[in-house]
Amino acid sequence: MIALDDVLVTAYSPDPAGGADRVVRLLGPVTLELVEHRVAIVGANGSGKSTLARLLNGLVLPSSGTVRVNGLDTARDGAAVRRTVGFMFTDPDAQLVMPTPVEDVALSLRRLPMTPAERDVAARAALDRFGLADRAEVPVHALSGGQRQLLALASVLATEPAILVCDEPTTLLDLRWRGVVDALLADLDQQVVVVTHDLDAALQADRVLVVDDGSLVFDGDSAQAVAHYRALMQVRA
């Protein structure tokens, strides 16, 4: 279970007049409990929805308030939180750090107590699960964008986190790969929190949060939330 208690996130912003840096509000205050199996977060670019997602595994720390995942405080127990919460990014190129797929998955597995040989077997099994077994030794830069995103997912899920947070996982993908990734995410046993611009995907969620200008402006049933978000964007346009 994810619990945000009176969370406020701030950042430094340079003063255009050349003075000392100012502190600006990025998100909050937000108080939330997320227990649903599928949660979607929607909002305009720069609204703070990525900040909200990044709070959930301690990538962003609250300036005040607390974020707890299964009772673990993200500020105090960061390492344990990241073992519990997997995180998938928009751009797999930033996320995939080793030259070949099997090495990249094996890198994720390093924090589990395994011998290198066991790690290799487990890494290949994880690749097989996402249909990447025959790509194990191919250089990552030779994979297609969709295959790279599948590999990113395989690397994150190899350690079997209890919760998966995805920040716009399908934004860079074509329609076919978008379907593949959405279907894979839908099949997971884990609790999944997805930040998305894809309102069709948001409609499938059990609960949808709408973030705007650093605040949570709607929270609830997916159909109502998506309708609220559409109305909000129409006002802007």
Partner: peptide, 18 residues
């Protein structure tokens, strides 16, 4: 920007800790 995104991704994967 790419390096910083990679740094975030490494942190998210719990690498470079403990």
């Amino acid at each position: 920007a790419h390096a910083r995104a990679t740094g975030d991704a490494l942190a998210a994967r719990g690498l470079g800790e403990n």
